[in-house]
Design a protein around this nucleic acid. Structure first.
Length: 556
RNA sequence: UGGGGUGUCGCCAAGCGGUAAGGCAUUGGACUCUGACUCCAACAUCCGUAGGUUCGAAUCCUACCACCCCAGCCA
C-alpha cells in the first residue's frame, strides 16, 4: 500500500505503521449507535474516516454499533445511508454489529473465561460501583474474582440461556483493581438485558459492552485504523488488552484519537435537541436552525461548503472552539459558486416611472456572473416597479450610493432612473416614488456615458408574485458561547434560546422563481442566499434564508 | 492528591534544531451594472512560565502553571 504526504498527525501515524509493516492497508469504519440524528460533529468524524481511507486506496465500513437494545429505538440505516450519500460518501458495506459479530464476540468471551481472564461477578451494581475505588484510591477485588473457571463458564452459559434476571450477574475482565486507569479496574464486558433487539429480536439476552465489543468488531471485520474522539483515549489500554487477550493475531486494529468539533453558540446535545423537537419549539429534527445534517440540508447549506469548513478546521488533538463565522465563510463561498441569482424585494417600496409609456420590456439577468455556463434568465421592466425600502433615503448617510431625492441609481439589468418626487402618505410615510428613466442607459446598450455609483435590484409589478421568506437567528443567544456549559451551570434551556429565532415575512419575487424546486439554491441579489423549503405548496412558496451576503457598508 | 491528554496571533492551524506558513475575523485601499465575489496591503521580534543544553531552540532537557477527559451493568 502506498504512503502519502501526511496532512495531519493521524496520517503520520498511519504512514509509520505502513512503513514498519504493523499494518498492510487502511480500512476504517464509522460506527454510529443507531439512536438519533447526525450533526456537524459527526460530519467531522465521517470525513476523517472516509477521506483517510480513500487517500490510501482503502475503504470504510458503516457499522451499526448496536450493542445496547435499551437505547436503540429503531433502524436508522436508511437515514444514515442517505446522509452519507448527501455528504458524498459511500460505505464499502453496511454492517449491523449485532447480526455480524455477536456470535464471534460471545465465543471470545468464553475463551477469556477459560484462560482465566474473565469471571462472573455477582455483586450488585452499587457494590460494583463502590468497590471500584476512586480516582485517587485503588479499588477492591470482588469476592467472586477468583472463583473456579468452570463456575464462571457455567453461569455465563446460563446467562446466555436466559436463566438470570437483569442486574444479577455480569461478566468482568480480570485485569487490575488497583490500576490508575479506572477503565482497567475489571470492567464489565457482558450484561443481561431481557428485551427485544431491533435487529436480532430475542436471540440474545446478554449483550457485550462497548469496550469489549468495539475492538473485536474492528478486528473481526478487518478494520486497521479505528479512529475516534479523544474521550476514548483512556479506553485505549483496554481496547488493546481485549485484542491481546481475545484476538491474538498478528494484525490488529489500532485506535487513534482526535479532538471533536466544537462550535461557538451551538448546542448539539441530542437530549436537548430532542426536548426542543418534542416541545414543538422547532420545526423538527430538520429544523433549519439545527446543525443536524438534515437541518443544514434544509437550511440550504451545501455538503461541499460543510466539508470545506471541516477541512479548514483541521485534525488535531487540541481542544478548540471554532466561531460560526468560519462555517459561514465556507457556506457563502460554495453558494457563491452554485446559487442562481434572482431579484427579490423583501421590503417593497413602489416606484412609478412617469416617462415610461410602453407596456413592458424584457431584460436579461445572468444566473451566475461567476460561472459563464450558468446562462441567464429573462425578467421585465415596466412602468410600475418595486425597490427595497432601504435602497431609498430621504436623509442619506455619507457614502450612501443608492437612490436619493433628485439622484440617480441603476436598476440591475435595466435602466438608470432619476428620482423626481417623493409622494407621502397622510401620516408622513413614503407612499411611493416618482422617477424617470434615462432612455439610452439600458444594460448592455448604454451609450449615455452617464456614470452611476449605485446599482439596486428591483422587481416589476408585471413580473412578480408574493412568496414567504423565513428568516433565522441563531438558536442560542450570543452571550452563551458555550451553551453546554451554561446548561451544566444551571441555566435553563429556555433561557439559552433566542426569542423569535424564526420569523416569516412576505416578499415580491420575480416570476422566474415560480419554477423553483425544493432545496434549489438562489442568491437573492444584494441580500443573501435562499433555498426553497419543503413546506412550500404549488401556489405558496416558502424560501429559507440560508445566510445573508456579507455587507461591508457601514454608516459612520 | 491518581491516570490520560493539550498548550504557537482574537479564533483555527503549519512548524519535527537553522532563525514564526496559511485560513477565519478585523482594519485600510482598488475593482465592481450584486456596497457580494475578486484583488492588493496591514495584522505574533515571538511560540503557557522559568531555567538549562547548543554557535543556534517554538522545536531537545528539567521544573512549574493552566485547561480538558476518566469513578455507566452508555456509546
Amino acid at each position: 500500500m502506498k504512503l502519502i504526504e501526511p496532512t495531519n498527525f493521524i496520517e503520520e501515524e498511519i504512514n509509520k505503521d505502513l512503513e514498519s509493516g504493523k499494518a498492510k492497508e487502511v480500512i476504517t469504519r464509522f460506527p454510529p449507535e443507531p439512536s438519533g440524528y447526525w450533526h456537524i460533529g459527526h460530519c467531522k468524524a465521517i470525513m476523517i474516516d472516509f477521506e483517510t481511507a480513500k487517500k490510501y486506496g482503502g475503504y470504510t465500513y458503516l457499522r451499526m454499533d448496536d450493542t445496547n437494545p435499551s437505547k436503540e429505538d429503531g433502524d436508522f440505516a436508511d437515514s444514515y445511508l442517505a446522509d452519507l450519500k448527501w455528504l458524498g460518501y459511500t460505505p464499502k458495506k453496511l454492517i449491523y454489529a449485532s447480526e455480524a459479530y455477536f456470535d464471534g464476540i460471545y465465543e471470545i468471551a468464553e475463551n477469556l473465561i477459560k484462560s482465566g481472564d474473565a469471571y462472573i461477578d455477582e455483586q450488585s451494581a452499587e457494590e460494583l460501583s463502590k468497590s471500584r475505588g476512586t480516582l485517587t484510591t485503588p479499588g477492591k477485588e470482588s469476592p467472586y474474582r477468583n472463583r473456579p473457571i468452570e463456575e464462571s463458564l457455567k453461569i455465563f452459559r446460563d446467562m446466555k440461556a436466559g436463566k438470570y434476571p437483569e442486574g444479577k450477574v455480569v461478566l468482568r475482565a480480570k485485569i487490575d483493581m488497583a490500576h490508575p486507569n479506572m477503565n482497567m479496574r475489571d470492567p464489565v464486558i457482558y450484561r443481561v438485558q431481557h428485551m427485544s433487539h431491533y435487529r436480532t429480536g430475542n436471540k440474545w439476552c446478554i449483550y457485550p459492552m462497548y469496550d469489549f465489543a468495539h475492538p473485536l468488531e474492528d478486528a473481526l471485520e478487518g478494520v486497521t485504523f479505528s479512529l475516534c474522539d479523544m474521550s476514548f483515549e483512556d479506553h485505549r489500554p483496554l481496547y488493546n488488552w481485549v485484542l491481546e487477550k481475545g484476538w491474538k493475531k498478528k494484525y490488529a486494529p489500532r485506535q487513534i484519537e482526535f479532538a471533536k468539533l466544537n462550535l461557538e453558540n451551538v448546542l448539539l446535545g441530542k437530549r436537548y435537541l430532542r426536548r426542543l423537537v418534542d416541545s414543538k419549539l422547532v420545526l423538527g429534527w430538520d429544523d433549519p436552525r439545527f446543525l443536524t445534517i438534515v437541518g443544514m440540508k434544509r437550511r440550504g447549506y451545501t455538503a461541499q461548503g460543510i466539508k470545506d469548513f471541516l477541512k479548514s478546521a483541521g485534525v488535531t488533538k487540541a481542544d478548540s472552539v471554532i466561531p460560526l463565522s468560519a462555517l459561514y465563510y465556507h457556506i457563502r463561498n460554495d453558494l457563491n459558486n452554485v446559487a442562481t441569482r434572482a431579484m427579490v424585494v423583501l421590503d417593497p417600496l413602489k416606484v412609478v416611472i412617469t416617462n415610461y409609456d410602453k407596456d413592458s420590456e424584457e431584460i436579461e439577468i445572468e444566473n451566475n456572473p461567476n460561472n459563464e455556463n450558468a446562462g441567464s434568465h429573462k425578467a421585465l421592466f415596466s412602468k410600475e416597479i418595486y425597490i427595497e425600502k432601504e435602497d431609498f433615503s430621504l436623509n442619506p448617510p455619507p457614502k450612501y450610493n443608492r437612490l436619493v431625492e433628485g439622484g440617480i441609481v441603476r436598476l440591475k439589468g435595466a435602466y438608470i432612473i432619476k428620482c423626481n418626487k417623493v409622494v407621502l402618505k397622510d401620516n408622513g410615510e413614503i407612499d411611493h416614488l416618482e422617477c424617470e428613466y434615462l432612455p439610452n442607459t439600458k444594460s448592455g446598450q448604454d451609450n449615455s456615458g452617464i456614470k452611476c455609483k449605485g446599482t439596486i435590484h428591483f422587481v416589476s409589478a408585471k413580473n412578480c408574485f408574493k412568496v414567504t421568506i423565513r428568516d433565522f437567528k441563531n438558536l442560542i443567544k450570543e452571550q452563551y458561547v458555550d451553551p453546554m456549559k451554561a446548561l451544566e451551570d444551571g441555566v435553563s434551556l429556555e433561557e439559552l434560546l433566542t426569542p423569535n429565532s424564526m420569523t416569516e415575512s412576505v416578499a415580491y419575487a420575480e416570476n422566474f422563481l415560480k419554477t423553483a424546486k425544493v432545496e434549489d439554491k438562489f442568491q437573492f441579489m444584494r441580500k443573501g442566499y435562499y433555498c426553497l423549503d419543503k413546506d412550500s405548496t404549488k401556489d405558496s412558496l416558502i424560501f429559507n434564508s440560508t445566510i445573508s451576503l456579507k455587507d461591508s457598508f457601514k454608516v459612520k
